[in-house]
């Protein structure tokens, strides 16, 4: 078990945002968090690596209690890819090397450079390594952010809408890369998403949030049109194309 969340709740100023969250993620598993805007998907993700401190519940990563760990210790076990990353005049190599920060004690070691080099190769970024990140395209920048999280050598990867603001080709490219990483390194990954069909295609399980609690957790055989309609308030039908389930929204209810 890589991630084990029990009865997690978070809120501020007496206002509950998420509550009663129970989730588990196994090695090599990619879990998608789905649900309408403002339902608490990002909040849940940020609770997992204590960017938000949960008000109740427990989070275990590889059987260690995240809530009792220091920020540095958390960064050694959990990689986080934020929804937006800012650019600066930093080369791609240095931007990824930053992911080694939790490992770097006094100065950058030879191994840090090797790990970065390997990650750049895996994400097809090697030829860009000395470009400044403020000259990259959105897709390239997202790959840099993922590479940065990877060189942390985490057991768990958190991704906040990794494909938002990307074109079709880049969306598929990024999701394929994430899938490959999860499979090849046998790590766990949790990502928030809006695109249900991409989630169906790339994630192993889907966790639907509604009103700050888990409405349903299912996989590609147990997902149903009813669940999606209950969560999003929109009737859908599920079709199968070459054995892949595809969700098609119906007319908007008047």
């Amino acid at each position: 078990m890589i991630l084990d969340i029990n009865q997690l709740a978070f809120g501020y100023n007496g206002h509950r945002i998420i509550s009663n969250i129970d989730l588990k993620v196994e090695p090599g598993e990619l879990l998608a968090i789905l649900g309408p805007n403002g339902v608490g998907k990002t909040t849940l993700l940020k609770c997992i690596n204590k960017i938000h401190r949960p008000s109740e519940g427990s989070i275990l990563v590889e059987d260690r209690d995240v809530l009792k760990m220091s920020p540095d210790e958390i960064a050694l076990g959990i990689g986080y890819v934020a929804q937006r990353s800012e650019t600066s005049r930093l080369t791609v190599f240095d931007a990824v090397l930053m992911g080694r920060k939790p490992h770097i004690k006094w100065s950058v070691a030879e191994r840090d450079l090797k790990v970065v080099d390997a990650a750049l190769q895996q994400l097809d970024l090697a030829q860009l390594s000395l470009r400044y990140i403020d000259e990259l395209s959105g897709g390239e920048l997202q790959k840099v952010a993922i590479a940065r999280a990877l060189v942390q050598e985490p057991q768990l990867l958190l991704l906040d809408e990794p494909t938002s603001s990307l074109d079709l080709r880049n969306q598929i490219n990024i999701l394929t890369v994430i899938r490959k990483i999860v499979d090849s390194h046998r790590i766990g990954a949790v990502m928030t998403m809006h695109d249900l069909n991409s989630a169906l295609r790339y994630a192993d399980r889907y966790c639907f949030l509604k009103g700050g609690i888990i409405h349903a957790v299912c996989n590609c055989t147990t997902i149903s049109a009813d669940i999606i309609e209950e969560v999003y308030g929109l009737p859908v039908s599920i079709h199968h194309i070459d054995d892949n389930p595809v969700i098609v929204p119906e007319e908007f209810p008047n």
Binding site: K46, N49, I51, S70, P71, D72, E73, I74, A75, L76, I78, G79, Y80, V81, A82, Q83, R84, S85, E86, S88, L90, D94, A95, M98, G99, K101, P102, I104, A145, R148, A149, Q152, L158, D160
Partner: peptide, 20 residues
């Protein structure tokens, strides 16, 4: 220095890297 580099990449990213 590394903390400032991380903050340049955004608060969320920096927090994810263990920066207070």
């Amino acid at each position: 220095s590394w903390n400032y580099n991380a903050i340049d990449a955004g608060d969320e990213t920096a927090k994810g890297l263990g920066v207070r």
